Amino acid sequence: MSSPNQYFVLIVPACAALLGIAMIYCWSRLRDHRYLLWIASGYIATAIPMGIHSLMPTELLARWTLPLSSMYLLGVWAMAQGVALRFGGRSHVGGACLIMATTLGLLFYFSRVDDQLWLRLLILNSGLALLVALPAKTILYGHAPTLPLRTLLRASYLIVLIYAFIRVAILATVIPHDGQLELTRSGFWLLMLATNMFISIWLALAILTSTAMSIVQTLDHERSRDPLTRLLNRRAFFEQVKKRLELYGHNGWAVLTCDLDHFKSLNDTWGHAAGDRALREFGALLARTVRQDDLAARFGGEEFVMLIRSTSLHTAVLVAERLRSSVMNLPIAATAHTLTASFGVVQLNSNGDINQAIEQADRLLYEAKHAGRNKVIWRAS
C-alpha cells in the first residue's frame, strides 16, 4: 500500500516536468536558443523515472533498473549538453556513450545476476556524476564574452557538479550493504528529492534569467544598429561618445565625417540594390578599421561619422587617407562603378564639443566635395 508521503514526494518530479515544459514553450518562441530544448528534455527525462521510483516498492526496483536508469542517464546528459551549448561548446557524445554503456552493463549484472541495491545506487549515481562532468572544461574555462550572467551560470553548474559527486560519496558511506533499505520510503530518498528540487529550480532560474538577459541584449543591440551596415546608428553613436569622453576625457580624439561620392548617380544608373551593396561594403570597411575604443556610425543615407583615438591630427588624417584609398578597391558586384569617398577630419581639443566638432568636420567634408571629391580635408577644432 502506498503511503501519503509517497504521493507527496511526487511534487518534486512534477516540478521538474513543469520546468521542462516551460523551457519547451520558451524554445518554441525562441528557436535560436536550441540549448533550451536540450535542458527541457533533460528535466522531463529525469522527472519520469523519479516519479515512478517514488511510487515503486523496493522489491520491484531490480526489474525496472535498466529502463529507468537509461532515462536518468539520457536526461542528465541532455541537461549537460544544453548547458555546454549555452557556452558555445558541447558535451562529448563518444564519452557519454561510453559512460552510459558501462553504467548500464554494471547495472544489468547487479540487478539480474547479483541483486545488490546499494551497488546499483552507487553505480548509477557515479555514471550521472561523470556525465555532468563531461562538459566541465567547456563551461568552466571556455570563453563566452557575450553571454550575460555567465558567472552565475558557471557557479550553478559547479554546484550541480559538486552535488553529484558528494551524493556518490554519501551513498558509498551511508547506504547499508545488507539490502535492508526501503529506498523509496526512506528519509534518504526524501532528502535527495528535496535537494534535487532545490538545485533543479536554481539551475532553471539561472538558465531562464540568462536567456531573458540575452534577449534584452539582442534587442538593445538591434535598437542601436543600422540595419543595412550593422554600424551604430545616430542615437547609439552619441550615447557611446558620451561614455567614451566621460571615461577618457576629451583629449586624444578625432572626428571623421565621410560621404560616398556620386552615390545618387550609382543608384540611378545601377539601381538601389547596387547602392545597398556599396553601403554594406563601405560599412564593413569602417568596421574593420575601428579599434576597441573607436566608434563608427551611419548617420543616414551615404553619410558616416567616426570617433577615433588619435594623439594628433596627423594620425587621424593618415587613417582617413587609408580609408579613402581602400574605398576605391571595394567591389560592387554587377557594376562598372568605381566607389570614392570624401572626408572631413577634426581633432577634438580638451574643451571641444562633439556636436560642434561634427558640424566643423561636415563643413570640411563639403569643402572636399567642392574641391573635386575623393579628398581628405582637415583642421584642428
Rank of each mutant, 00 (worst) to 15 (best):
G275P: 12
D276F: 06
K264N: 11
L266G: 08
A254S: 14
W253E: 02
A236P: 12
Q292M: 07
L285D: 01
E281P: 03
D293K: 13
L260R: 03
V241H: 07
D220E: 15
Q240C: 12
E222Q: 15
E239V: 11
R291T: 05
L219V: 14
E246G: 08
H221L: 13
T257M: 14
L295N: 02
L208N: 12
L256T: 04
R298Q: 01
R234N: 12
F282K: 09
Y248L: 05
G249N: 09
E302K: 06
A278V: 01
R288D: 03
L279F: 14
H262V: 09
A297C: 10
V255R: 00
L219H: 03
P227W: 01
R277G: 12
Y248P: 03
L279D: 05
R288Y: 02
M213Q: 14
G283I: 15
K264W: 08
R244D: 03
D261G: 03
Q217N: 15
L245F: 02
L245Y: 05
I199R: 00
A284Y: 02
L203D: 13
L219T: 06
L208R: 02
S310Q: 05
A212T: 15
L232H: 02
F304R: 03
H272L: 02
V290Y: 01
V290S: 01
S200P: 04
T229I: 07
T218R: 04
L205Q: 03
